[in-house]
Design a protein around this nucleic acid. Structure first.
Lengths: 247, 247
DNA sequence: CGTGTTATTGACCAACATCAAACTTAGTGG
DNA sequence: CCACTAAGTTTGATGTTGGTCAATAACACG
């Protein structure tokens, strides 16, 4: 069995996959043997651009990234946020042309994994192939939930929902334990994720503070009333299909 | 080689998969050997309900279905429309609990395929496994496009975009050849898909008619100006990841 | 024909957008 | 350590898209 550091790229990926599936020792060893090419990006850089035809997948090791599209009139829609351990362009294994970009929300380090290595591991280890497929299916489930939110929920609900989602996912990865976390996104980015204007996001956040649901001190968001926030956001973590609900 | 009728369930599935991938004769034979259990549903019936734990996948043979969620306050969000040949709950192979329902938009016939048979075919035929994975990835790409639309596009753009999408997918399947098709959805359903009210959908459809982009005669929608409609909807079929763009 | 569903219209309204300016905060360099 | 700067946040005033409600018209089907 290979020994790997707690916060190594391989360990990140294993930890992420173990939030959604069960791996045995051989699976973990196979992942630990995956060849990686590390790279850093600055805030606001693109890891991958719309239209690219990547030959590698990028495993997020440190920092946060988002998927986004830029539409005809220059408006941006963010379609998901990704945390360490995620492979946000896993779909590029089977969809050759990127239909969206991946942007760094913070300074970021990623590990690129050649497509051939990914294909090889899915061939040799069916459990891992299933885990990867499942991961992309969960991505899709999150898109559906966001779609429902943007389509049918109020601005207050959407924002509360997003905070609940991020907190739940961070907890599942063991990146936070108490219900407060470093906000990695600006209000403008929240707006682009939720189909709102940044002005309105600002006002709603103030409402949520006034209602005693959250507090914001500097860059840190603290959830004061988890149950209240869940209720305000109509949040139910089922769509994340986690192995254990961390709340 | 097995011979199968043009409009048999197996043929539908093969035709659908061939819009997004390449199959060889062995692949087609393997699909043609899949065990099926046919069933009919009436309009508005649920094929699968949110919370279900299906043990079969349902292959749509005839008619149209949608995925949808019902949110806290009883509002409905439709997340996709599905055409013959689609397996709209393919994700249930790896996500055991349905996080949304599947509803019949018209009278429908489906063919249920046991999960074991699906697992067996993915084990024995990697090409088909890849095709299935790719299909779910394209579903996800469509969710992303819809998310971008609902988040950032105007009502006019969203409606024009949806019409373009449906027409493109119907053409890809060879279900229509000219740019007019039987509208399988009510205006209320379009509204629930696009995050609008049915009143507003009605008004926008009238605008599109006034602008000479479409015509509606009874249940049939005819596209009068494909280029104009594409432009009005900011439509680019790339996100559908079709093998051949049928437009 | 009647009956239920769908489409259409009008009047009115609310949520959220836009614009523009001021204020904070966190870095940066002297 | 402090001024300077750029990014992000906050505020106010005003505008617009699209929602709601309610009534009527058009179909479709038995």
């Amino acid at each position: 069995m290979t020994t790997i550091a707690e916060d190594s790229p391989h360990a990140r990926l294993i930890r992420k996959l173990e939030t959604i599936t069960v791996l045995n020792r051989d699976d973990r060893d196979a992942i630990a043997a995956l060849p990686l090419r590390a790279k850093s990006f600055e805030e606001n850089q693109d890891l991958v651009r719309q239209g690219d035809r990547p030959s590698e997948c990028c495993l997020l090791v440190e920092g946060f990234v988002c998927r986004y599209k830029v539409l005809g009139e220059g408006q941006r829609q963010i379609m998901s946020f990704h945390l360490p351990g995620d492979i946000p362009d896993l779909q590029s294994l089977h969809l050759k042309v990127m239909d969206h970009g991946l942007g760094a929300l913070t300074p970021v380090t990623v590990a690129f994994i050649p497509h051939e290595a990914m294909e090889e591991i899915t061939r040799s280890r069916p459990t891992i192939a299933a885990a990867f497929w499942r991961d992309t299916l969960i991505d899709a489930a999150v898109f559906r939930e966001w779609l429902a939110g943007v389509g049918r929920r109020s601005a207050h609900q959407r924002i509360a929902h997003l905070i609940c989602e991020l907190c739940t996912r961070l907890k599942a990865l063991g990146l936070i334990d108490n219900p407060s976390f470093q906000l990695m996104v600006t209000q403008a980015e929240v707006a682009d994720a939720l189909g709102l204007s940044s002005v309105h996001v600002n006002r709603v956040l103030q409402d949520l503070r006034r209602d005693g649901l959250i507090a914001i001190q500097g860059r840190v968001l603290k959830i004061l009333d988890w149950e209240g926030l869940k209720e305000a956001g109509d949040f139910d973590s089922e769509y994340l299909h986690l192995r254990h609900d961390p709340s």
